[in-house]
Write a protein that binds this DNA or RNA. Structure first.
Length: 547
RNA sequence: GGCCUUGUGGUCAAGCGGUUAAGACGGAGCCCUCUCAAGGCUCAAUCCCGGGUUCGAUUCCCGGCAAGGUCACCA
């Protein structure tokens, strides 16, 4: 059979680059030894989620801790999956979390290895497919979807491996006449790889994350060019990661089972294999068993969830870092002031099994991260959230920057040796400040004491309150008032003889606290009252009295 | 079902032939204290099961079992 003639008939394109042209156009990168070139390669479909961010962070760290390149490639070979604005959304989302691409689709930069949209690289794929046909390593297949379904059914019944291989690969050995007859009758066709592999041969393969794994040779005659002439993922992956000079392919472990295909593809194309690292997917518990986080069922997978709830972007990143490299936490504890970017990230230290997504842990990391901000920075962060997600009242409150910052200085314990860690995320933090605003202060008083005791305490305290008192003077007066209202002024007194008192000083303080803040818990009451001012503090005390 | 991957406290996990089996989150308690938060201290809780190999296995081997992934002209 004249393969050259066949190739020309199958792929008649006139403007295809030569194979040498491609090698010349995309030469090996000039980077220092050990620099990793990694990529994020999403399809322009649904928007980016936590799982993507997790894997993108691994890519980004691997590249940027080695002085390499992190680029964005859009895998748009499936027209049906295209969603308008998805690319911008990916870039914006990653940017929100502080991850930046060095090159790629819609990225301003050198971009010498583009185009980064696979559809725009069609001539390259077609040139290589044509070459494969000429070398007898690929062939046209005219099987219809129905025929394929039928053989799959038969294979399932016979308990054989499904797919297009061996005797089931009907079009693999079509005669020249058959091929041209089919072509002449205008039958649509795909191009398949003529696999040279043998499933009885196994190799061990070194995965950068999983370590040694056994891979069986591929024997599937996979489709490399679809009937619309566009490559499948497998083919595009091999060609792009070769010519974009990717050194390390980090991707989800769902790709592990197609690794044999990729190995064979690189081999027949004559390319060196990049290194691979297959990450485990983030899991969650559902009905007693673990399962992969799912876009549809789990709101916490959507990045919008974190934005809406007001998580601090860097906190999410640091949480992800603790999952990525479990020694990160230890390092961060030792270097509290250092940027997480200085952490020596290592692909080989990544976990081998799927981690359960842990909201408690995220909250802890987040609390810690937020406690490091200054009140000014915190104002900026909260204000950003308020503008986008807050109520009209929130926005009005945040107009008074000075007042908010005074509150934040208190809530965060600014200036104290021990920072407070009350704020976990913006939404909760903003609600935490509600009682400082009269229009948001809607207390449901629930005192643990009789009306008499409550009123006596409130009255006694109001009589002596002086907004100019410092903390200790304030507390001394509270003690006085407590004694007057029948509470013990000193802890020791109360402990010695509880029945002689209505309660302890702390109980007395609680009454005032509930009157002022509506809650039995709050930061330093003296300061709270100072921020509210004399008028409002006394008004609240009066309003809280039990009728 | 075939193939591949993974199995250390509730969660994330270090350790990889001899350890009192780290640490963090969460839980319980104590201290501090006007409450809360923070902080300090203490406690409870783990090597999937069965066989080997070995003087000795959480660590190595073999079998189970369980969980996850994958079997498209989707990525």
């Amino acid at each position: 059979m004249d393969l050259k003639k066949l190739a020309a008939r199958l792929i008649p394109d006139e403007d295809l680059p030569s194979l040498e042209d491609c090698e010349r156009a995309y030469p090996p990168r000039k980077l220092k030894e050990g620099a990793e070139v990694t990529r994020l390669a999403p399809s322009p479909t649904g928007f980016i989620h936590l799982g993507n961010l997790y894997s993108a962070l691994a890519d980004e760290r691997a590249a940027h801790t080695t002085g390499g390149i992190f680029y964005l490639r859009i895998e748009d070979t499936d027209e049906k999956r295209r969603v308008e604005g998805a690319v911008e959304s990916v870039i914006r989302s990653l940017d929100y979390f502080g991850l930046k691409f060095d090159e790629g689709a819609e990225i301003v930069g050198e971009n010498a290895y583009g185009p980064y949209y696979q559809r725009r690289r069609a001539p390259i794929y077609r040139a290589f497919a044509k070459d494969l046909i000429e070398r007898g390593l690929a062939y046209p297949c005219f099987c219809t979807e129905e025929e394929l379904d039928e053989t799959r059914k038969i294979q399932t019944e016979r308990k054989e491996v499904t797919g297009y291989y061996g005797a089931y690969a009907k079009c693999r050995n079509l005669s020249e006449e058959q091929i041209y007859a089919a072509l002449d009758s205008g039958k649509p066709f795909v191009i398949r790889l003529k696999s040279q592999g043998d499933v009885n041969i196994k190799h061990t393969f070194r995965d950068a994350i999983k370590g040694g794994i056994t891979v069986t040779e591929n024997n599937q005659d996979v489709v490399i060019l679809k009937s619309d002439g566009i490559p499948t993922y497998h083919f595009a992956h091999a060609i792009d990661d070769h010519f974009m000079r990717t050194t390390l392919v980090i991707r989800g472990e769902e790709w592990l089972s197609s690794l044999p295909i990729h190995i064979e593809l690189f081999k027949v194309l004559g390319f060196d294999l990049p290194r691979y690292g297959h990450t485990c997917s983030l899991m969650k518990v559902d009905g007693g068993t673990k399962r992969k986080l799912s876009k549809r069922k789990d709101p916490e997978l959507s990045l919008d969830f974190y934005r809406g709830a007001g998580y601090y972007p860097q906190a999410v990143i640091k949480y992800l870092m603790t999952i990525l490299n479990s020694n990160f936490e230890e390092w961060a504890a030792k270097h509290p002031e250092e940027d997480y970017k200085n952490f020596p990230f290592s692909v080989s230290k990544m976990g081998k099994s799927g981690a359960l997504f842990d909201l408690d842990k995220l909250n802890d990391v987040s609390r810690d991260e937020l406690s490091k901000l200054t009140p000014e920075e915190m104002y900026g962060f909260l204000n950003g959230w308020v503008k986008e997600f807050g109520t009209a009242a929130d926005r009005a409150h945040f107009e008074d920057r000075e007042y908010i910052q005074k509150i934040l200085a208190l809530i965060m314990g600014a200036g104290q040796k021990k920072r407070r860690k009350d704020i976990v995320r913006a939404e909760q933090g903003v609600r935490l400040m509600d009682y400082f605003f009269d229009d948001a202060f809607a207390p449901e008083y629930s005192f643990r004491f009789e009306a008499d005791a409550v009123n006596a305490m409130l009255t006694a305290f109001a009589e002596t309150y002086d907004e100019n008192d410092d903390n200790s003077a304030w507390f001394a007066k509270l003690k006085q008032a407590a004694a007057k209202a029948g509470f013990a002024a000193e802890n020791a007194e109360y402990k010695a003889n509880p029945s002689a008192y209505k309660g302890n000083v702390s109980d007395a303080a609680e009454i005032v606290r509930i009157a002022i803040t509506g809650s039995p818990n709050s930061p330093d009451l003296c300061t709270v009252m100072g921020i509210l001012g004399r008028e409002r503090s006394l008004a609240r005390i009066a309003a809280a009295k039990v009728k």
